[in-house]
């Protein structure tokens, strides 16, 4: 019989468990949010409506592959470091999480820099729309995830949360961020290599 059944407080493992499960469901929702862009890519590319999927006759958008690779490296490295941080003992996770935070923000900054020098825009036919829509919303989502990570780091540094809660939170952010890294990998393959 569960010893907590007769207590007035929630079981101590409850909050970490809800964070763990909630992060999985949330990540699934996030992944489904990007599915329409994946679908749009294949659907519009296959239809090639009016023959202008890839752009106007004399203006084919070609995003800088260097930017794409740099963003991908930052996102994947950040996600990998954060996943590793979630498995570290004691407070050793903090420097790793801070590094992941820096890399994540760098990815967002690089995406903004790419938009500033893109050479095409959302009005440039099917491909341009999918590119700007997908990468733009990804950058927003990535920024939101970094804010989540920052709040966990800030709590840890101020000592305002207990260890089990912090560990569950870091693990949750890392899982969500890892799923987003998969989304970004798919985006890179499709938008830079396949398109």
């Amino acid at each position: 019989m569960d010893a907590h059944a007769s207590t007035l407080e929630d079981p101590p493992e409850l909050l970490p468990r809800t964070i763990w499960v909630g992060s999985r469901v949330f990540a699934a929702g996030e992944a489904f949010f990007f599915v329409p862009f994946l679908f749009a890519f294949f659907y519009l590319r296959a239809l090639n409506s009016n023959g202008v999927w890839r752009g106007w006759p004399h203006h084919h958008p070609h995003p800088s592959r260097a930017f794409g690779i740099a963003i991908l490296i930052c996102v994947v490295a950040s996600a990998a470091v954060l996943r590793a941080a979630a498995r570290m003992a004691g407070t050793a996770w903090r420097p790793a999480a801070a590094a992941a935070f820096g890399l994540g923000l760098a990815a967002v900054a690089l995406q903004c820099a790419q938009f500033a020098s893109l050479g095409f825009g959302p009005t440039d036919a099917g491909y341009g729309s999918v590119f700007v829509g997908w990468t733009g919303l990804f950058a927003l989502t990535a920024f939101g995830t970094m804010l989540w990570l920052e709040s966990v780091l800030a709590q840890s540094l101020r000592g305002s949360a207990d260890v089990s809660y912090l560990r569950a939170s870091v693990e949750a952010v890392s899982f969500s961020w890892a799923v987003l890294a998969l989304v970004q990998t798919a985006a890179f393959i499709l938008l830079y290599l396949v398109a």
Partner: peptide, 24 residues
């Protein structure tokens, strides 16, 4: 996401759903 695409078609002139410019 589908509504965001429609919103972008209306406000940012993307062409997710416009056949004449590569959408559907």
């Amino acid at each position: 996401a589908a509504l965001l695409m429609e919103l972008m078609d209306r406000a940012a002139n993307t062409s997710f759903y416009l056949t004449s410019s590569g959408g559907s």
